[in-house]
Design a protein around this nucleic acid. Structure first.
Length: 545
DNA sequence: TGAGAGTTGTTAGT
DNA sequence: ACTAACAACTCTCA
């Protein structure tokens, strides 16, 4: 009897799963089985660069899915390790699969594109019906058209003209019970007990990766409970608690007014659940929409709907860049949406490598920057404005190190790491693309004080400084040495001195951005515009300067 | 061609 | 709490 397979990828949930509904319908018509499958592919975006925290988040999401399938439907999740191109055809043959359904991956991320093309081809070759359904974005990317405006304003305008409404979510399917006791108990398809059970990536050498499979890290990670446990159950609980039950807060939500150094959650903290698909973006959109209907509410870009629109916009931009030059989105070279800038790379010299390491490990000597980076390392999630602070500091603000290097660290550490969104924000913060007001520079001393004058956030994540008077908490090197001794932390000994003088570096870096922009106008990138204008517009600007 | 807008800067004044 | 100066970006649209 022909069975169906639902291949879980990003949509790690049972609600709003039209592809799973389809699998269930086909199976019910023929009285066949539905095989829910997850392929642990170490080269995929979710695992290639991946901290222990992020690996654990994924495994928790899988466990939640598996246990829901078992409890609600007497079914299970079949987890296999390897490349989908290799392992799926074997399972199709073994289980007599007639149709495979999955959530469409529209990220435009090069590995996903080639993987899906290969699986599609194999399905065709094996005469297996393959159905990919768009579920991880509010709209099918194709519906935005061939050319999406490259500003948020333009995107908002496009959004307003779109005739097709955002679709409603589908009901959760009732899977037929999986009547094969042997397969239900088969341990070869179990979820690995910990991240060490995930195979090594093959496309990037080990020394380029954070060793998530490091036993010591792994053991340490097992001992602590995560502040952000993975899975649909937790995601939906959080949606209820942070959104559905906070109607006034939802209506009034304006992103810039939230706080990067709140010890609780200043935002919805749902990004990691949306990112892995533990919560459907459509579910979030319509829950917010319901609340908006109850009264006056904020508008995009700052509103909650505006945040979801930013995500759609970012994914559109990633696709657009990769359509011109495949794979260019996550880098400077060849990315038409990225200004070329003469960044330093951590591999340039020992001094830059040391600065980069200090930034990554939260040892810059700027307590606010360090607190954010340490929270990132510990919890895998930091507030959006915290990301602004540290991204600006690494790139155009202080260290003049390539945004690409920063983006790779965020990819490893962030539970919500997303190909389109992460790279977009690094382009933005480094003034490489979309945002160009380089004279607006975050101060590692002043910025945090606005929302946390007492420095409680710093005291939590940089405990060396917990006894410092609030007068010095953002710039502890200014405290008299007697006080430093009294407070149990001598700067330069127990906590680093600043690795860079912000006031000097930020001024110098502004000039560097200005030069890079001027060079862009004159040469390389300016040629694009010059060709379009077919006159000396670039030259004219240069004279003005 | 030039005015106006751009999710989320800082500092020094009132 | 608000405002202007900082020294001045790019993109859109009329």
């Amino acid at each position: 009897m022909p069975a169906t397979m639902h291949w879980f990828r990003r949509g790690l949930r049972l609600h709003d799963q039209p592809a799973l509904v389809k699998s269930t319908q086909i199976a019910k018509e023929t009285g066949a089985k539905v095989y829910p499958v997850y392929v642990l592919d170490p080269d995929c975006y979710q695992l290639l660069r991946c901290s222990v925290n992020r690996a654990n988040f994924l495994l928790e999401a899988l466990r939640d899915l598996d246990s829901q399938l078992r409890v609600r439907y007497s079914s299970r999740l079949f987890v296999v390790a390897g490349k989908p191109q290799d392992v799926l055809p074997q399972l199709w043959k073994k289980w007599g699969i007639a149709a495979i359904t999955t959530d469409a991956d529209q990220t435009s991320e090069p590995y996903a594109l080639s993987r899906d093309a290969a699986v599609r081809e194999l399905a065709k070759k094996n005469s297996i019906q393959m159905l990919e359904v768009v579920t991880e974005t509010l709209r099918d990317m194709a519906s935005y058209g061939d050319h999406v405006p490259e500003t948020y304003g333009g995107f908002t305008k496009l959004w307003g003209t779109m005739k097709t409404p955002i679709s409603k979510e589908v009901d959760t399917p009732t899977l037929p019970p999986f009547e094969d006791k042997q397969l239900l108990a088969d341990k070869t398809f179990d979820i690995p007990a910990d991240a060490c059970g995930i195979p090594w990536p093959t496309t990037v050498s080990r020394d380029q990766l954070t060793p998530i499979w490091n036993r010591a890290d792994m053991e340490a990670a097992k001992k602590k409970t995560s502040r952000h446990p993975g899975g649909e159950t937790e995601g939906l609980a959080r949606l209820k608690q942070h959104v559905v039950e906070r109607k006034q807060w939802v209506r009034e939500f304006e992103k810039p007014k939230t706080s990067p150094n709140s010890l609780g959650f200043s935002t919805t903290a749902l990004s990691m659940y949306i990112g892995l698909g533990c919560v459907s973006p459509r579910r979030l959109y319509w829950e917010v929409d319901k609340i908006y209907k109850t009264g006056a509410h904020a508008q995009p870009p700052v509103s909650l709907h505006g945040q979801l629109m930013w995500r759609e916009f970012n994914i559109c931009m990633a696709r657009q860049a990769n359509r011109k030059v495949p794979g260019s989105w996550g880098q400077m070279a060849g990315n038409y949406l990225c200004r070329p800038m003469p960044w330093k790379s951590p591999t340039d010299d020992a001094a830059t490598a040391a600065q980069y390491a200090a930034w990554r490990d939260g040892k810059t000597g700027y307590p606010f920057v360090d607190a954010i980076m340490r929270q990132l390392r510990q919890e895998g999630f930091i507030h959006h404005l915290g990301r602004h602070m540290v991204a600006c500091f690494l790139t155009r603000g202080d260290l003049w190190i390539s945004w690409e290097a920063g983006a790779r660290v965020f990819e490893e550490e962030l539970l919500d790491a997303d190909y389109a969104v992460n790279n977009f924000n690094w382009l933005w913060l480094s003034c490489s693309g979309f945002f160009y007001q380089y004279f607006r520079c975050y101060s590692p001393i002043a910025f945090g004080k606005k929302t946390d004058p007492n420095g409680d956030y710093i005291r939590k994540y940089v405990p060396e400084l917990k006894s410092f008077d609030k007068k010095y908490i953002y710039e502890p090197w200014r405290a008299p040495i007697v006080d430093q001794k009294k407070w149990g932390c001598v700067i330069g000994n127990d906590y680093p001195k600043p690795i860079v003088a912000h006031d000097v570096a930020s001024k110098a870096n502004m000039s560097k951005v200005a030069s890079a922009y001027a060079a862009f106008k004159d040469g390389g990138g300016g040629a694009k515009r010059a060709a379009e204008a077919a006159d000396g517009a670039g030259g004219k600007k240069k004279v003005k300067r």
